[in-house]
Design a protein around this nucleic acid. Sequence first.
DNA 1: CAGATAATTAGATGATTATCTAACTTTCTA
DNA 2: TAGAAAGTTAGATAATCATCTAATTATCTG
Lengths: 100, 100
Amino acid sequence: MNNEVFKALADPTRREILRLLGRGEQSAGQLAEQFDMTKPSMSHHFSVLKQADLIQSRREGQQIFYSLNTTVLEDVVTWLWDVFARDGELSRDAARSKLP
Amino acid sequence: MNNEVFKALADPTRREILRLLGRGEQSAGQLAEQFDMTKPSMSHHFSVLKQADLIQSRREGQQIFYSLNTTVLEDVVTWLWDVFARDGELSRDAARSKLP
DNA sequence: CAGATAATTAGATGATTATCTAACTTTCTA
DNA sequence: TAGAAAGTTAGATAATCATCTAATTATCTG
């Protein structure tokens, strides 16, 4: 999982897009309607999310439908868990920190 | 949990600081040693992490020790889980999306 | 094919941010 | 009390980013 994922998550508009897509796929237009922002700006956010592999797209006629890519979000959870879960505790990997 | 948390996580240096602190508290100097960056730059990153409530500090003589605040990281995990865990699934809260 | 609809791409702009050097603060100690 | 050690704060700068308007692409339909 790369830096782009976290940078993508740093914007509140993009996080809200992800939250909405958690309810199921939506077209670019449907999504855009729910924000006080121009369509090009929304399109930019879709692009950032897609580049980070957080969402996928599929064309159906004139519309483009976006949906969550949960795999990458799971990776984020794993990273976070890995960071905080071993705080204070002597976890299975604690020994690793003592290696050269 | 606010926007500052995600903005703080968007920088790779700060994520690495968190990862290191996951092994236990360290002084500002100890942390700074492990990065190819000036101490003021590191101090800036500490400040951002602290503002986001991701870390805490404690002074001991001339040194300042930083440590993880796992509570906020747990909140991030919860948010992420909430987003992706209900994708495709008819979760307990699915009905909420049909309300006005 | 012409026009309408859905969406993206291009280019510009103002705001935010990561980083640096220089200066300052706090604490210890000889 | 003077100097060193550990950090932070101030101020500047270059890069990145979110947003907008205008133009472009792709698809459908009369």
